[in-house]
Design a protein around this nucleic acid. Structure first.
Lengths: 208, 208, 208, 208
DNA sequence: GATGAATGAGCCTTCATTCAT
DNA sequence: AATGAATGAAGGCTCATTCAT
């Protein structure tokens, strides 16, 4: 019986090493040699599993995006469907969850954002993610605001998420999730009818 | 005597070529060979004028930052000192002015943001710019809000600027300055006492 | 598994190619491209094995120095410890042994001598070698002469070795070891007490 | 009246700068830019006056050789023709005169020796110089020794000169002319008939 | 005569990828 | 499956030389 399931072991191992290396030395110095060494494997294996460095980078971006999507879905599942404000806040919260605001991940995110502008594969991933965030926000906001307002507030919230995230990424102390959620939460609360705040208070999750 | 005054010609020429090349093919493909060819000069000249590629990149970032600072100052000078709301909007507007939202410039900005996380020289420039934006916003907001609120709103406005700017950079159509200013303006107007809106209406610039 | 034990093959291979190339075209034209081609490998491999061209040059100098040290030790081991004159001559002889007087090696030696004046790493190697030669000579000469004389004669012998070697290096015909050893031998014999000549005659090695 | 005699000013100016620069940073880093800057002129002038860098290097070597030849001739002129031992010592002394043992000059000499092995123009200059030294020494030694001995001693003296000079060049303290002349003088005196020592004592120069 | 801006070839080095083992 | 030695293209930089002024 040969070693089976190696792909399932190697791929995450290399993706995590990629995030770590980009986080530590930046995209321009993240060579396959360093990534391989960090993962404890030989550089040749990267081409074997990902077809090349580009494949590894794309897989790494997919990994981070999937992590965000999973967290968002999980957080929403824990939030009452009757509490649209809570659900909007859950989406915001997911974007500032532990896995997304670690220094290595923010650095990698930013590197991909920059690269996505000239790399079709990454660009597509980027777009899907951006549209999903807006769509999630709009879906909940429409339950509290008229369509036009919902659309506009969704854009503002998405911008606030990205903006706070971006500014935090460039700060030595990193991102402060509580502060971020506070600022965005205040803004949202000021735009939606009061009754949704009451609903939210009643259905609030323990972990919140 | 040889041609004199060439430094004053070559440096902007090469910086503009750098922005153009990063905008078109991305930082990772922006070699001195391509930049030189785009500028219509030989690659060796870059080291001559900037000491090396890093020097060119730093000078390019400085150039963009200075452009933003100049525009902000100019726009503020055109705005009445008695109209704090107008002045905040002027700062916002400056960040979405023509020079800053062209596709090449946003791409270059983003590349520098990513790179700044691992390049001390760029990091310093980045920090100075970020702090200046916050400081400008706070200065005007303090005239309309209590200090704590001013501080908080300043962060939110800065985040909205960067967030909208960032999301726009990743959109095929690019940034829509009017929409950006509309969203941020609505937010600010909802946070400041009504009388500042009246003052703003009276002192509004024509060009606005 | 890849080819193993390659370092043990590649390093000497590249060092020999370096000596050959410096011997043939000189230090200023000894590029990694030419050295690699001469060794039958790609230029990139030099940085892989020696960390860079400087590392290769240093390793090459070490190689030549070690060769001289090995030969000297071996020649001394073949010479009776009771024959100090023979031992001095053995040291002289080692400096004119086959490996040291080939055209390529003398050219490389000279290039290193020149370079050592401005390269700390090479300078250190150079100094160690120079001091060892003097120390070896003094040790044997002290057994035949008073300390001051021994010191002085050691300097003269070392100078004769280097001088003859240097002049020979610049002569089309190269160095004539027999003539060199004859000149230096005559000088030494004229400075030491006669009885050491008698001892020498009795213990003389066959190969001499 | 145009500037006349500029060549007579510029050439020595550039040659001296060349010696200085090679002495300070080594041949491999002695670029025309640095040499020009050291001489206080533009790099382009070198091609103008010497046809290129090679021409400058050749002229520099000629300059040093001519300096040695001039000093030797001058020192011999001050020495009685009836004192062959004194004349040999005068030749030796010339090789350790101030102009020849300065750190910059020894460094340059050595660089040229190395380069001469692969540069026909420098090689020819080198050969002329080496042969002249031997020929001068032989001419005087023949007056004191039989031809074969004279030839052999001439080689030994030349080797001692070059050897001491070379070893001194690689020593931090530089060359000690007195010690050098002492060692070589002792050697010569031990090889020539006693009566030449007496003659030498009577005709000795004051400056000696 | 002299400048120094500009060139472009050549250098060393890095790196993604390949492949024999 | 995995290695890591090896490749060779591409990168940034240095430099001798040229030339308009």
């Amino acid at each position: 019986m040969p070693k089976v399931g190696m792909p399932e072991v190697r791929r995450p191992q290399l993706i995590r090493a990629t995030i770590k290396v980009i986080g530590q030395v930046g995209m321009s110095r993240a060579s396959v040699a360093v990534i391989g060494r960090t993962a404890g494997v030989s550089p040749g294996i990267i081409s074997h599993y990902f077809g090349g460095k580009d494949g590894l980078l794309e897989a790494t971006m997919r990994f981070i995006l999937k992590d965000l999507a999973d967290i968002t879905r999980a957080t929403l599942d824990k939030t009452s469907k009757e509490d649209p404000l809570g659900r909007v806040l859950a989406i915001v919260e997911s974007n500032f969850s532990g896995g997304q605001v670690s220094s290595d991940v923010t650095s990698t995110w930013l590197a991909f954002w920059s690269r996505a502008m000239h790399d079709p594969a990454l660009y597509r991933l980027q777009q899907v993610n951006e549209k999903r965030l807006l769509s999630y926000l709009r879906a909940e906001l429409k339950r509290m605001l008229v369509v036009d307002e919902a659309r506009s507030v969704a854009i503002a919230v998405a911008a606030l998420i990205d903006g706070i995230w971006l500014r935090g990424a460039l700060t030595p102390k990193g991102i402060n999730p509580q502060q971020a959620e506070g600022i965005i939460g205040d803004y949202i609360k000021s735009t939606v009818p009061e009754r949704f705040l009451s609903i939210h208070q009643k259905t609030i999750r323990k972990s919140n």
